[in-house]
Amino acid sequence: MPLVFAEPPISLPTAHALAAFFTISYVGSLYLSKSARTVYKTDVSNDTTPGEERTKDNEERSRDDPVVIRARLTAGSISTALSVGAVYWLVRSVTPETELVKDPSTALKSTLARLGVTIDFAHNSPLYIIFPCLVIPVLYIGPLFVDWLAETLPFQQRWSVQGNLLPLFTTLIGLRNYVVGPITEEIVFRACMLAIYHMAGASRTKMIFLTPLVFGFELSKAHLHHAWDTYNQYGRTATAARIAILSTLFQLTYTSLFGFHCAYLFLRTGSLLPPIVSHVFCNIMGFPQYSYHVWMFPTRRRPIQMAYLLGIAGYIYTMRWWTQADDSLFWPAPGRVARY
Rank of each mutant, 00 (worst) to 15 (best):
P50L: 08
S271R: 00
V146F: 02
A195L: 09
V4G: 07
T205P: 04
N232K: 05
A227G: 12
R190W: 10
G174D: 06
T23D: 12
T299P: 03
I316L: 15
Y31L: 11
I187D: 03
T42H: 15
R54M: 01
A333C: 12
Q233A: 08
F281L: 00
L18Y: 13
V180D: 07
R301N: 10
L30H: 07
D43Q: 14
Y264K: 12
L82W: 00
R268G: 03
K41R: 10
W331E: 12
R302I: 09
G85Q: 00
L100E: 00
L90G: 05
M193R: 11
P9Q: 14
L265V: 01
M199P: 03
G335Y: 05
F266S: 00
S45I: 13
I316Q: 07
I129W: 07
H123T: 15
D327H: 15
F287H: 10
W321I: 12
G201E: 10
M193F: 08
H293M: 13
Y40T: 10
E97P: 01
D64M: 14
E60Q: 14
T152P: 01
I284P: 09
T211L: 08
P143L: 09
S93I: 09
W148D: 05
F330N: 09
G314H: 06
F250P: 00
L166I: 14
Q305K: 11
A86M: 06
P298N: 03
G311E: 01
W159C: 05
I316H: 08
A6N: 13
R92H: 15
R37Q: 11
Y290E: 05
L273E: 03
C262H: 06
R54K: 01
A241V: 02
L153W: 08
V277G: 04
L165N: 05
T171R: 08
Y315P: 00
I276A: 07
R336G: 01
S328H: 12
L3Y: 01
A200Q: 09
L219P: 00
L90P: 03
A15G: 10
G314F: 08
G201C: 06
A81G: 14
V179H: 06
L257W: 04
S247A: 15
H16Y: 09
F209T: 04
G85K: 02
Q324W: 11
R54I: 01
I284M: 04
V87D: 05
R339A: 15
L249E: 05
E151W: 01
H226M: 05
A263T: 00
D47W: 12
P132V: 09
I284Q: 02
W321L: 10
S35W: 11
R63G: 12
E99V: 13
F155T: 11
A81F: 08
F281M: 00
T255V: 04
L73Y: 07
V214P: 01
W159N: 09
I119E: 05
T171W: 00
A307W: 01
F260T: 10
S93Y: 08
Y128D: 11
L249N: 03
E52M: 14
R339M: 14
P334F: 08
Y88K: 01
V277S: 06
L144W: 06
H293Y: 14
S35R: 15
